[in-house]
Design a protein around this nucleic acid. Sequence first.
DNA 1: CACTTGACTTATT
DNA 2: TAATAAGCCAAGT
Length: 124
Amino acid sequence: MNCKAAIAAFFMHFRMTKNKDFFQAVYDIVRLIPPGRVTTYGAIAQALGSKGAARMVGWAMNASHGLLDVPAHRVVNRKGLLTGKMHFEDEGAMQRKLLADGITVVNDQIQQFESCFWDPKELG
DNA sequence: CACTTGACTTATT
DNA sequence: TAATAAGCCAAGT
């Protein structure tokens, strides 16, 4: 299944489950973040229809530990700051994973953040 | 069962 | 321009 179809399938699934599994919807979006790209809590919340529910997205990520295929390191705050790094295994884990994706992080700030940013609604 | 907190963001003063 | 308030919704206490 190509990326576009996967995302389309996700949105269909999302519309059916958004009121049931907010967290699951968040995980589904995070799983679809392309390698080398990042997105924000707010963008995910907005894609879910709840513009101001960024905190929930963060809460969902907090619960995403142990879930494979959920690259939580690709989710940062709106400035591209690694606000959640402290919740990883160790402080360097998040930055290391981003670096492995080809994303440069300096002083907890993603470089070229705007060009790495991936809006869930861009569908690819 | 009521209150606080949290990996956030936008609006208001 | 910077500080503060408000909104989001679930989970812990």
